[in-house]
Design a protein around this nucleic acid. Sequence first.
DNA 1: AAAGCTGACAACCGCAAGATC
DNA 2: GGATCTTGCGGTTGTCAGCTT
Length: 275
Amino acid sequence: MMGSLATQKGWRKGPWTGEEDKLLSEYVSLHGDGRWSSVAKFTGLNRSGKSCRLRWVNYLRPGLKKGQLTPLEEEIIIELHATLGNKWSTIAKYLSGRTDNEIKNYWRTHFGKRERSKHKKKLQRPKVKRVLKQLKHKQQQEQQPQEYDIKSIMSHEETVNETKSFETQNCKQQEMGFMYPTTEHQYTVPNSLHEGFSSTWQDSTLVDDDSWFSLWDFDEPQGFSDYVDQFSKCAMPNQATFRVGGDYSMQNDVKTSRFDDAYDNDLFYGKDMFG
DNA sequence: AAAGCTGACAACCGCAAGATC
DNA sequence: GGATCTTGCGGTTGTCAGCTT
């Protein structure tokens, strides 16, 4: 409908100029976003409302992150895509400052190809072992008490193909605290997590980003949402000690709703992301 | 150096759903 | 209640820069 209308009216197409961006930004600052069909009338822009909205949402809107997606954002996208499919706008809501278009494009050029190649699992598992070894080594060096049973975790990684018992046995028995190693080696989620999801995580990562993500068991389809579930249960506004584990089988029953609860309560993604 | 390839990104299109008349 | 308009979403295409051959 809009397309045919645009054609009839002879809307300008193609890349936006700086002047057009300025006009659109001025319009939004005066009238707010929305009413896109009125932009042409008020600004003289020869662009369809649809084009204006797209330009604003994907390029001009304040708070947008520029530049490459971080490895963490990449893993989040993989995980969410496994759960949600091609719900790009939904996925984008979980990544502050990223647009659905950006994620969609990134998926097509990166993850889609990777998924098709089916190399993902083979690539990740060795990294998990490597990172766990790093953590273990650091602990030994600093002679800190063990806060988690690394042997059982590694054992899990080695046998995950054969059994799913880790989640229901080891995790249930241990309250593993290693999932979020900060620079102090305390396994907590920093309070600043509330300020933004991806940037905070990057800042607090102990090991190199690329390796750290492998600590997540992304081979488990519910892995990420389980994290959210645990976080929503344990994290308090000013005390965000985070434990991982629990009864995964129970979580399976209501995985999606719990995930949404965490989202709705702003426990996980920052308070002003959806304002 | 030039042609071809690939990745990254911006933008367009068709469609569907909700809002408004 | 139906027609029309508006908005948003997902798929797709076009363009350009950097890399490879």
